[in-house]
Structures are given as structure tokens and as C-alpha cells.
Amino acid sequence: MNAQPTTAPGAEEPLLRTAALTRHFQIGGIFSKRTLHAVDDADLTIGRGEIVALAGESGSGKSTIARLLAMVYTPTSGEIFFEGRPLSRLRSRKDQLAYRSQAPMVFQDPFSSINPVYRISHGILRSLVLHRPELDAAQRTAEAERLLTVVGLTPAAAYMNKYPYEMSGGQRQRVGFAQALASNPKLIIADEPVSMLDVSIRIGLLNLMTELRDQAGVSFLYITHDLASARYAADRLVVMYAGTIVEHGPIEDILARPKHPYTQLLLATVPDPRAPLADLAGADRGEPPKVVDPRPGCRFRARCPVAVDECATVTPLLRDLGPRHLAACHVTQPDTAPGTTAPPQREHA
């Protein structure tokens, strides 16, 4: 299990907290059952009014965590706490709906997350009917127009009558945020919300996220593989590899002083026009492992340039390597350890 501490006595309970969150999938036939370890012992927290970026390669378990937090998947083991209350105790449909209204998702593909048959007002109004039944028809229309204004679609009355095909990808993604905001959420789970948009449009969506954090106090779990966008919008960074959390902490600290060799690899893949081609060619040493019935040990060891014998037999736990900066690595040393140095890093812009 990862060694992230639980909430200290007297400390404020975070908005969302997971404890040893695990999700496995059974694969194979009747005579060859195997277990895919999509997420293992994930401990993370999201504070109130905070954007937490969850980064890693495809297949690292990021979207599985999103679906666990959205109650699309049921954990194999572990627990999710929302405002201190365990989600496993939400038995009734009413309680589950109340939670989902507080933690909606914004999906990756703006082209398929909105029903193309209806005008874009349909999804927002439907969400208001479902999650805010105290509003009458006129109030719902006014609230829908207000939400479109909040996400930057003005004049709102004109956008209410548009069909999805009449809007750009960025505008449709803003509609997705408006639908999520319709339930007055405290947390939005944003699964790669800008990855399918042009670079010129992404900055507007990232600004929208930071505005919602600063002005409305909405927290975000921002799932991404783009460390540049994470740096722009997020307060903290959580790095996943092969179903496990390998590093987390304040984003500026991690990007300036990455501790885990995998985080260093991710940073090495960020384009740097000053770097010679030889450096880029040697940045990666292979593909991520298949996490089917994994053995003990560090899952990154086959690609790691600093692996030692212990990495093959002992699974590393998250440990403090700096102020609020944790990493799961046998080799990397804390900032304050005398006479120790971390593996050399290339400077990035």
C-alpha cells in the first residue's frame, strides 16, 4: 500500500480522499483466468478549490481512477471518501445521485458527449431537471443561459438554440462544462478535456477551469498526458505509471525537481528546441509493462536507467523526499539528505 498519510487529527478533511483504491479486471477464458491490475493502492487527495492534475502515459490507470471516482466502476478494494463520507455506504439511488451531482464528469470527446439530435440547451435543462428539481421551467431557462455565459458562450440565448454541428469543438467542450456546472458541483472530473482540441483553443478551456476554481470554488481532477497544460492550470501533480501512483506533490516543485525516474522520462519527452538529437533518442528505454498478474517489485524497473537489485523484488512505497513531495523509488534520495544527489536532469523551459 502507498504510504500517504490519512488526514491528521484536527486538520481539515479534504474534499475527496482515496485510501488504497484498487480496481482489478478478470480477463482470459474459463481455464486461464488472469487479473489485470488497472489501479493498485492509489492514495490521493483533492482539496477544496484545488486543481489536481493526474498525468501518465496511456494505459497508466488515469481514466480508471476517473471512473472509480464517478462511481462508474466499483472498487475491487479500498475506499473513496467525499467530504469525509465513504462512497461505499451510498446504497440508495437517491444518495448516489446526490454524490454524482456534486462530482460530474467532463469527457474527452466534445463531438460525442452531446446528443447531436437535440439543441445544446437540451442537455443543460435536463441536468437541471434531474439535479435541481426546485427550479421551475422559467428558472431553468434563466439558469441555463447564465451557465452558458459563465463558460464564455455569449450571447447565451443564441447558443441555446444551436445544434452541436453548428458549433466548434471548443464551443462544444464549453457546453460540456456548462452541463457539469448545472448541478452546482463541488468537484469536476475532467478526463482529457482539451486533448482533442486545437492548441489555440486549449488555453481558453484551461483559463475556464482556473476561473471556476478561483471564482466559484470548484475543484478539479484534471486528467492529462500533457505536462505543459498541467503546469498552466494545476496546483498539484499526481503521476501514475502502470496502475500505481509513483510521485505527487506541488506541481512547480515536481517539474523543477522530479524525483521518480518515470517523471524524469515524461519531462524528457517535452519538446526542447535546445536539446541535441542524441539526448532525445536515449530518453526512453521501452514500452510500459502489461499489468496482468504483476510480480512484486517496481513496475518501472525494466525501463529505469538507475534500477538496482532491490527494484526487482521489493515494491517501492511513496515516501517523503521534500516538502509535501512524495515518490515511490528505492534509489532517489530526499533533497535534504547530506552527500546524496539525484540523477542528473536536463533543464527545461
Rank of each mutant, 00 (worst) to 15 (best):
E287C: 05
A66V: 14
T269A: 15
A328G: 11
G61C: 09
M1S: 14
H24G: 06
V306Q: 11
G243N: 12
L69I: 01
I65D: 02
G243C: 02
G10N: 11
T340Q: 15
R48W: 05
N2Y: 00
A337R: 13
P288E: 10
G47L: 01
E252S: 14
S88D: 06
R126K: 09
S195K: 00
L135Q: 08
S63P: 06
Q96P: 05
N115K: 04
E247R: 14
L237H: 06
A230T: 12
L181D: 03
C304T: 03
V150A: 09
R236I: 01
S101P: 02
N184M: 11
I65H: 08
D293F: 08
A228F: 01
A230D: 11
T149E: 14
D43L: 02
F220R: 04
T263E: 11
P338M: 03
P116T: 03
P288F: 06
R17Y: 04
A230G: 13
T74E: 15
K94S: 03
L318V: 05
K162I: 03
A278C: 07
P343G: 05
R295E: 14
P133E: 12
G217N: 00
H122I: 04
Y232C: 10
I245C: 00
E79H: 11
V239F: 03
V331P: 01
V150K: 13
H248I: 01
I27E: 11
V175P: 07
P110L: 00
Q264F: 04
M167E: 02
P273N: 00
A66N: 11
T64F: 08
P273E: 10
R303V: 09
I201Q: 07
E145R: 15
P323W: 02
H325R: 06
G339S: 12
G170T: 10
L181T: 02
T18V: 06
A230Q: 13
Y118V: 01
S121V: 05
I30M: 15
M196G: 06
L153D: 09
S32H: 15
A233P: 09
L267S: 07
L205A: 01
E143I: 06
I189S: 06
Y118M: 03
A178F: 02
